[in-house]
């Protein structure tokens, strides 16, 4: 494996992450790569499968007791659906769960999403290593 040893690999209990496809978008090349790479980096990965609603994703995050939810969305529905996940998590009392997003999301939309509580938006072509390093830092902080 080429990826540098992840922070999570040094921990006794692997950190859990929920990776999710939101809405009707079927583009799953990216999310599968991320899931595979995170697993190789020592994360315990739970994948929701395709076509999930914000409600299902937020509920799964609570039930699976994850710290991070990584949502992939390439259909343009991010403006509506991503903030909904954040809102629902808050409603369910899971304030410390971080939501990150990836997909075809313009810089302007990414700025707006940040204000709406999405921790970070990764664009197409982001190296997997960069995402893992970000997650490692976040986990170390919390």
């Amino acid at each position: 494996m080429s990826l540098r040893l992840s922070y999570s690999k040094k921990r006794r209990i692997p950190p859990r992450i929920l990776v999710a496809k939101l809405g009707l978008d079927g583009h799953d090349r990216g999310i599968k790569i991320i899931a595979h790479a995170l697993r190789d980096a020592g994360y315990e990965v739970i994948y929701t499968g395709l076509f999930q609603t914000p409600e299902v994703v937020a509920q799964a995050a609570v039930e699976e007791d994850v710290r991070i939810v990584a949502v992939s969305i390439l259909s343009g529905a991010h403006k509506v659906l991503l903030p909904k996940v954040v809102k629902l998590l808050k409603k369910k009392g899971a304030r410390d769960v971080q939501v990150i997003g990836g997909g075809i999301i313009s810089a302007k939309d990414a700025e707006r999403l940040k204000k709406q509580g999405i921790a970070r938006v990764f664009g197409p072509g982001t190296p997997v290593q960069e995402i893992i390093s970000f997650l490692d830092r976040e986990l170390e902080r919390s």
Partner: peptide, 22 residues
Amino acid sequence: DLPTLLGYDSDDPQAEGEVGRC
């Protein structure tokens, strides 16, 4: 758009946020 691709009308609850997007 995705609702059309999957056979949903624009007012279907599944179509929320997706109408005319891609």
